[in-house]
Design a protein around this nucleic acid. Sequence first.
DNA 1: TTTGATACGTTATAGTATAACAATCAATCG
DNA 2: CGATTGATTGTTATACTATAACGTATCAAA
Lengths: 164, 164
Amino acid sequence: MTTPGFHDPVHDHERCLAEALQEAEQLCRDRGAQLTPVRRRVLELVWSEHRPQGAYELLEQLQAERGRVAPPTVYRALDFLLAQGLIHRIESLNAFVGCPRPSHVHNGQFFICEACGATAELSDPGLAERIDRSAAALGFAVNQRIVEVRGHCPDCSIQGSPNP
Amino acid sequence: MTTPGFHDPVHDHERCLAEALQEAEQLCRDRGAQLTPVRRRVLELVWSEHRPQGAYELLEQLQAERGRVAPPTVYRALDFLLAQGLIHRIESLNAFVGCPRPSHVHNGQFFICEACGATAELSDPGLAERIDRSAAALGFAVNQRIVEVRGHCPDCSIQGSPNP
DNA sequence: TTTGATACGTTATAGTATAACAATCAATCG
DNA sequence: CGATTGATTGTTATACTATAACGTATCAAA
């Protein structure tokens, strides 16, 4: 798996990508889910950066390599990847990011840098519990917890930072 | 102020609305912010339900009473109301809901019923602190915390519920 | 009276997402 | 084998969400 938190601007990203793809293949094999070429390629594109990417951003890249591709193609691939837990949707950005722990069911917390876009996923079970306790007090049955924290990552919050 | 949590399907909503409007006027007066007729009307429309409403939903209502109204009009009003903290944007719905505690700076937590749309806002400072601690561990500087919990409200989670 | 700031009107367009139906293909069964 | 079924992808059109850019009106300060 990949390291938690933010990544160094220069890290071995080939390895992130390779590990994510390998884990996705394993997981789909185990579940009998079909990681087709389109779906696999979209997953690769999502994983090409540690930054949420919009559907149309992914679409453009697909079109660059395959000619005519229509929006439903990429949205269907994204739906599949979401259903398998291989990617997450960042609601506050209408964008998608790879999940570093796809085999582990969770609603993570996302820390999103407003300067460079880098996003880190954390999974604090205590936070989920705390939300669930509030929900219980309201008589509310929880399906999904969305936690998105906006701010500045370590690289962008120091003065003289690359993206002020 | 209005009561916290979910509201009874039949409650004195006139009162919710009147209180929200009164507080908004007070708050704008204190700040020298202009609660113009359009802005005030949009706030009323947002407060017409305890359920987040889309910009175009609000736009339709405005058009019904004022003839031609273009999207920027409603978006500008929403921007103003957001800036004053009089409403909140629900990111996972692209929709807007009235803030029951506008004079109190906060990032609340929203509990959103996926059946009936009813939304309750809570403010658990401990939750915010917990998020901030995670952020600090990452070296992340927090600007905004978005917490949206999807599930079923008390009225919709009982069997034989109105909106299963 | 001019100026500047603020709000609002208006037109056009950008960006995000899905409905509906056709085509393909592999697996299975009679 | 040929037919059927289910899953996936292609294709076209359209719906939904949001903003850019520029013009107009108002009002208070200089």
